[in-house]
Design a protein around this nucleic acid. Structure first.
Lengths: 261, 261
DNA sequence: TGGCACCATTTGTTGGGACAACTTCGAGAG
DNA sequence: CTCTCGAAGTTGTCCCAACAAATGGTGCCA
């Protein structure tokens, strides 16, 4: 904002303000680079620097040949807490996701299921309590909502459990993995969720269709039986379209008293 | 990676691989722009585009006059679940943060405490169950660890509760806000946490000392009594230095059987 | 009417050059 | 020996120019 800021920063601030105040609304096209060049009397290079700033902030998105538009966001909610999903877990992971989406009036689907055997990285090994380099079974899927990619999920299981419970199949486990594990005595009694954020790697950006300036929400759930870690699920959420929610404590009392919207 | 990729993308991929494989380690300096220019036989403009890509991925960080280095990350953990922090809540928000940091061998501190009265935005209004534009009391702080900024926290309270419980003071509430609320019958019985991610706004990037390509983790906790929402806490975490963790379910049985590291 | 070729528009890529601003470090002054 | 100043090195800002690539529409032709 200061007078001494670089030119391209001032132009970026100016456009940012116009978007924030609603002078340019979500979905609207921005002036073309040539128009901005004339408007601010700078080189096209400088205009592109300014647009790059806003692009990295996730505010705008440009397409070759079409132009530059203000991005609009639709947030989907992922309920992560135990109480919420306990009854759904009775059936299947797949069903849980479908149910969530149906509740929000969307159409969820899966694509690109893949079963692979991978060596444990140091991080995976530490969390699953196996040795580094040990074989793990990876069962990965991509989640789509209304035809748009929303998250990439990769679940890792120790090899001995996988063999015991029939997870080495290149397709869905009938009845769901959780049920298959429980049938052999591996009952989940709790989990640890870790949430971080970072910028996507190129392949993640491609698979999730992320435009420049969109971070991902990294969500790692390690579930335990009373004896050992059973499973590690790594989910990469497209940061501009997802929200993870935990509802904890005894909120039933509040709900009974006529809670808010 | 494809042969037909733009030059700057190929250079970025090349450098990314060198970093990933450890040919250039965290903390190391990259070749200077002029050296890269000669090495790849491109214009300095193109080199800067390539470095910009990696910068936006949060992999490198450059300083005028010094050079460009590979970033290294230290993660701090924030335990968010009820069970973990219940006993600490008995005292104070401040103490809870100190305790977390002490557990991880760090020195936590607060700066820039600020009490203000703000009108409720649509989002705040919906969550706190008040009307849009109603006055809310905002109590904000910045959290530092080892002298480095880690998160910005802003707690909002409905005006009537604030007056009743003496939150309109421009300094810490003795014994902690939670205790002050409970003393007047506003006992917290549960909460809803919402986690999202996005790129920081310019002022957030400045306050948190974020370098280019670092997203923030947005953490909203709404706490409830049995009758109404009591408080909304909005925390902006520096994405490259923070991890939010939830431990849920009955993991005591696992711990007793000699859990992992 | 349907489809194809072409053109204008717009963003993407790449090269060139110049100067500004900041850091480091060594030489020289005190 | 210490302090200061300035030169060298490095990234930041800004301009200019040209062509590539994608999009959308126009109009011709079958």
């Amino acid at each position: 904002m200061a007078q001494s800021d670089p030119l391209y920063q001032r132009i970026a601030s100016d456009l940012r303000d116009q978007i924030r105040t609603g002078a340019i609304k979500a979905g609207d096209r921005l002036p073309t680079e040539v128009e901005l060049r004339e408007q601010y009397d700078v080189s096209r290079n400088t205009v592109r620097l300014a647009l790059g700033v806003l692009q990295n902030e996730g505010m705008i998105s440009s397409t070759q040949g079409k132009g530059t538009v203000v991005r609009e966001q639709v947030m989907l909610t992922y309920h992560a807490a135990w109480a919420e999903s306990r009854d759904r877990h009775a059936s299947d992971q797949t069903d849980a996701f479908y149910a969530e989406m149906r509740d929000q009036g969307r159409k969820g689907e899966y694509r690109d299921f893949e079963m692979r055997i991978k060596p444990a990285t140091p991080e995976l090994a530490a969390r699953l309590h196996v040795d580094e380099g040990d074989s793990l079974v990876s069962r990965a899927i991509s989640r789509f909502v209304d035809g748009q990619p929303f998250s990439l999920q990769d679940s890792y299981y120790p090899m001995d459990i996988s063999q015991e419970c029939g997870l080495l199949t290149p397709h869905d486990v009938p009845g769901g993995v959780i049920r298959a594990l429980a049938a052999k005595g591996h009952t989940e009694i709790g989990y640890v969720d870790e949430l971080t954020t970072r910028m996507p790697r190129p392949d993640e950006a491609r698979k999730l269709g992320l435009s420049q300036g969109t971070p991902v929400l990294v969500y790692v759930r390690t579930t335990y039986s009373d004896k050992r870690p059973l499973r590690l699920t790594l989910t990469i959420f497209a940061g501009d379209r997802n929200r993870v929610v935990y509802e904890l404590g005894d909120l039933t009392a509040y709900a009974e008293n006529g809670g808010a919207s």
